[in-house]
Every structure is written in C-alpha cells, then in structure tokens.
Simulated scan of single mutants.
Amino acid sequence: MKTGLLASLEAQIEQWLNDNCESSDWPQAWMYEDIVRDMAKAAALVFDANHKGQDFAKRESA
C-alpha cells in the first residue's frame, strides 16, 4: 500500500474510533497510543495480500 493511502486509512480509522468509542456497542477496553497505526498496518497487509493474489492470477492465466 502506498504511503498516501496508508495515511488516509489511518485518518479514517482514527475518526471511526473517535466516533464510536463511547457507544454502548463498544467493548470495555483501553486503546493504547499506537492502536490506529497498528490497525492500519494490519489492514494494509490484507490489502497488499489481495493485490499479490491478483498478480498471481494474472501470471497463471497468461
């Protein structure tokens, strides 16, 4: 994932956390200072894995 997209993802995750962390649906849990970065990195790993899968499919079908 390119850095600009990762930064945008971090901003969206932070907004989502801020919008929902006091909801009654939110679990009773503490959020540590790097949670946004860690969640974005985890999502980026899934995003990149999907891209690798697409590249693999293109190579195999050629």
Rank of each mutant, 00 (worst) to 15 (best):
M1G: 11
T3N: 13
G4Q: 14
G4V: 07
L5A: 14
L5E: 15
L6Q: 11
S8V: 07
L9V: 06
L9F: 05
A11Y: 07
A11I: 02
A11W: 07
Q12E: 15
Q12K: 15
Q12C: 06
E14L: 04
E14P: 05
E14C: 02
E14D: 15
Q15W: 08
Q15R: 14
L17G: 05
L17K: 06
L17A: 00
N18S: 05
N18C: 05
N18F: 02
N20L: 03
E22S: 08
S23G: 04
S24I: 13
D25Q: 13
D25P: 03
D25I: 08
W26L: 03
Q28G: 01
Q28D: 15
Q28Y: 08
W30Y: 12
W30D: 14
W30I: 10
M31G: 06
M31C: 11
Y32C: 12
Y32E: 15
Y32T: 14
E33Y: 06
D34E: 09
D34F: 01
D34S: 02
I35R: 11
I35Q: 14
V36Y: 00
R37K: 13
D38C: 12
D38S: 09
K41W: 10
A44E: 10
L45W: 13
L45D: 12
V46T: 10
V46S: 09
F47S: 05
F47T: 02
D48Y: 09
D48T: 11
A49C: 10
N50L: 10
H51V: 14
K52Q: 07
G53N: 05
G53E: 00
D55K: 03
D55P: 03
D55S: 09
F56G: 01
F56R: 02
F56W: 02
A57I: 01
A57D: 02
K58Y: 03
K58D: 04
K58I: 02
R59H: 05
R59N: 03
R59P: 06
R59M: 06
E60A: 09
S61Y: 02
S61F: 01
A62K: 03
A62C: 07
